[in-house]
Design a protein around this nucleic acid. Structure first.
Lengths: 223, 223
DNA sequence: CGACCATTTGATATGGATCAAGCGATGTGG
DNA sequence: CCACATCGCTTGATCCATATCAAATGGTCG
């Protein structure tokens, strides 16, 4: 990925933030620079050195890996306000791409790390971020042993929690993205959604717009 | 779980370790107390407050959760030298049990945490532990979208890396444990192993003893 | 030896994958 | 403004990997 813009922008803003900082998230506002990405634009690649940490401002991001057989496994989706690309080792584990048109804030990983060395609260915030990612990965594991219906229902409920205060969810990702996250085919995801719609558990005013009509029924599917 | 023994033993040893400590793992030796567990003995339960952190001395441990439909998903296996039960929140995410007869070292979580507050190296070691758990959880996700053959082959190779320097692996866990880790049934695990044996990829001198005869073939399955 | 439990093996069923076609929205050129 | 191409999504038909149900085998411990 080409990263010339944030590099220089960050270098300029770094001297302005030497004091201890109560909140890691402030670091993004004070030290970060902003960049805009087009649909499907790569942010970083698997095995690349982890030079930056990112926070979604608007849009959405997917992390993924391509398996030997060509299938793509999506590790996670990141929505506005969420931080991604943080590694304790020097290498990214997964690749990251913007889903639609997306804006992210970027800070140098080395800056975040040295901040953490000076400030225990920041160190703890970083650890907490990794712990949250672990928690989500564990949930993801549990998702993958469920039936297609359960996976899709779980996914919609999770997206609803993360995106919308209301029962109408505007999904930022395609059916293929959902399929690759849930370990299903696009056909199965589509069929399952149609089925949930026919049971009136959800409404489908359009492909990307989902209405959760019966959360109880959706929840009932899950273990 | 009954925890009276470590509690008192730990209280006695705590005052002996106030100085900064180069390595988190030393904490287990200096501050920890040891406990012996019988087969299938519970170490902690899901949602229980995380009062201790554990390190396997001998034997093996599984963490797991029971889904609503009664199925058990094993999150991870822990082998001698490995640390488990560390949470950044106050609650355990998964339950933990000894697999066979197992010895663990135990230290109070609060002691580890306060050590981390004083010593940045310890804090980083704890974070690193969570990061490693995350890495494994991500590998686990990728495992679960593979075929039965691929899952079993992956599992055996991983166990070999972690248990044995040689090609003969003595598995500490049952077929049911393996099945619940891989998201398969016990029958499928058994059949798959028989099939790998018939292809001479592995040898099966006994159910728990696996000989990796052809690592290349096993690796070739994986993506 | 005999009981018990873990594992293996066999027969059948089924959920989701695969292959294939149809549909609907969006955009482009005539 | 409409014909038509494109792309993402849905729907249909069939196949296959793994689950399920059932029974046999083997190893361990009294």
């Amino acid at each position: 990925m080409l990263m010339q813009t944030p590099r220089s922008a960050f270098a300029a803003s770094q001297p302005a933030a030497p004091a201890p900082m109560a909140d890691l998230f402030d670091a993004f506002n004070l030290m970060g620079s902003q960049m805009t990405l087009g649909p499907n634009e790569e942010i970083f690649g698997e095995k690349e050195p982890a030079e930056y940490v990112y926070k979604v401002v608007s849009g959405a991001v997917r992390t993924y890996t391509i398996l030997k057989d060509g299938r793509r496994q999506i590790g996670a989706f990141y929505l506005p306000g969420e931080i991604f690309g943080l590694e304790i080792d020097n290498e990214h584990q997964l690749s990251a791409e913007a889903i639609g048109s997306t804006v992210v804030r970027v800070v140098r990983r080395s800056a975040v790390m040295s901040l953490a060395e000076r400030d225990g609260e920041v160190a703890r915030a970083l650890w907490s971020l990794t712990a949250r990612a672990l928690y989500r990965a564990q949930e993801h594991v549990m998702l993958l042993i469920k039936s297609a219906q359960q996976r899709v229902a779980c996914f919609l409920l999770e997206m609803s929690d993360r995106i919308a205060a209301t029962d109408t969810v505007e999904l930022p990702m395609s059916r293929q993205d959902i399929a690759d996250y849930l370990g299903l085919t696009i056909e199965t995801v589509s069929r399952t959604m149609s089925q949930l719609a026919s049971e009136s558990s959800i409404g489908l005013p359009s492909a990307r717009r989902i209405v959760l009509r019966n959360r109880r029924a959706l929840n009932a599917l899950n273990a």
